[in-house]
Each structure stands twice: as structure tokens, then as C-alpha cells.
Amino acid sequence: MDIAAPAPTFRDATAADVDTLVELIESAYRGDSSRTGWTTEADILEGRRTDPEGVLAVVEAPDSRMLAVEQDGRVVACCQLQHRGEHAYFGMFAVSPSLQGGGLGKVIIAEAERIAQETWGVREMHMTVISVRNDLIAWYERRGYRRTGRMTPFPYGDERFGIPRRDDLRFELLVKELG
């Protein structure tokens, strides 16, 4: 992370944050704005990544937390944590494209793991990543996540998850044992 950048602050998102979070998530993954960063999915998916209803459901779910990450008083990143019994699920991770590559993501994922352990006492963090996203999977592997080879189908035909530009998309489960 840039030495001059202020330390991020973390808080639970509220319903008032939903529109900001949707805009952030879309900017990090879809459309031309996402090409500023390295996490873009614009070459494999068109359409939306999420919608206000989906984000609000995460914000309001009793077994879930949506973390809003702020710098200089504005939301610059977010992630979802969901308690799933013995493990927590990590999702909806987005960092503003203009801040990607500076170390903020590493700080966020480490804090998310700490919060999941402290809040729910879980021993593992799970996530799913589109299996053709080799650069992103490699980034998670450098953070201690391992590929499991366990795949689930991409929801072709459900435009809430985007409009695929290829026919080989599926999700791979990545797992990390927490300390």
C-alpha cells in the first residue's frame, strides 16, 4: 500500500451504503472503468456483477457481514463475510480500480480473516473464483488459499450474474486454513 495513503478504516455496511457498494463492485469488475484495475472480468462477462437487492440481502442477513472499507471518508473497497458453520465465506470483494495493485487488497483480506475468526471462531475461509481467472487465483494463492479442484457451474442464463462471453465458465472453491 502506498506509504502516503491513509490507513483504511473498516465498518459494517448499512442499507444507506447499498448504492455506493453496487457502484464500487461494478466499477471493479465490469465495463471500461474496470480496465483501470487488474481485477476486471470485462473480457469474460458483460452486464451486471450485482444489483442493489443482492447487496442489501448481504447487508441485512443475520449470519453475514458486509464490510465497507473507507479512506479519506469515502468507501474505496468492500467484502462480504458469511458464517457457514465450520467456515466463513468470503465474497463480493471489490477494491476501487484506481487503488488496485497498491497493497490495499492484502490488508483487507487479512482483516476479513481476522474478523471471521474473532466473530465466529471459524478455522477456514472459503471463496469461489471463476476458474479461468488465473491471475486472480494466483493472487489468492500467494495469500495462502489453495485450489480444491471442486467446481460448481456458472449460472448461464441468469443475467443477474452477467452475460458470459465464453462457454467454459465455472466457479472453483478456494480454501484457507485460518491460524
Rank of each mutant, 00 (worst) to 15 (best):
M1V: 10
D2M: 05
I3Y: 10
I3V: 15
A4G: 06
A4K: 01
T9E: 13
F10V: 04
R11Q: 04
D12H: 15
A13L: 00
A13F: 00
A16T: 13
D17A: 09
T20P: 03
T20L: 04
V22M: 08
L24W: 06
L24P: 09
L24I: 11
S27Q: 08
A28S: 12
A28Y: 03
A28W: 01
Y29C: 02
R30F: 11
G31M: 10
D32F: 07
S33C: 13
S34D: 15
S34A: 15
R35D: 13
T36K: 08
G37Q: 03
G37L: 05
T39K: 14
T40H: 07
E41C: 11
E41F: 13
D43Y: 04
D43E: 09
L45W: 00
L45V: 01
L45Q: 00
G47K: 00
G47I: 03
R49V: 06
R49Y: 12
R49G: 13
T50P: 06
D51M: 11
E53P: 06
E53L: 14
V55Q: 08
L56P: 02
V58Y: 07
V58N: 06
A61N: 06
P62R: 12
P62F: 12
D63M: 09
D63G: 07
S64Q: 14
M66A: 10
V69R: 00
V69K: 00
V69H: 00
E70V: 12
Q71H: 10
R74H: 00
R74G: 00
V75F: 13
V75T: 14
A77N: 02
A77P: 01
C79S: 03
Q80H: 12
Q82G: 10
E86D: 14
Y89R: 05
G91E: 04
M92F: 13
F93A: 08
A94Q: 11
S96K: 11
P97C: 02
L99Q: 02
L99T: 01
Q100L: 06
G101L: 04
G101W: 02
G105Y: 07
G105L: 08
V107R: 10
V107D: 11
I108G: 03
I109E: 06
I109W: 02
A112T: 11
E113C: 09
R114M: 03
A116K: 05
A116P: 02
Q117D: 12
E118V: 04
T119D: 09
M125S: 10
M125P: 03
H126K: 15
V129L: 07
S131W: 03
D135M: 03
A138N: 10
W139E: 01
W139K: 00
W139S: 00
Y140W: 06
Y140C: 03
E141M: 14
E141K: 12
R142F: 05
R142G: 08
R142T: 12
R142A: 06
Y145T: 07
R146N: 08
R146I: 10
R146P: 08
M151E: 08
P153Y: 00
P153D: 07
P153H: 02
G157S: 09
E159T: 15
F161N: 12
F161I: 14
F161W: 14
F161V: 15
G162E: 01
G162V: 03
I163W: 02
R166H: 05
R166L: 02
D168W: 09
R170K: 09
F171I: 05
F171N: 06
F171L: 07
V175T: 10
K176S: 07
L178K: 02
G179E: 14
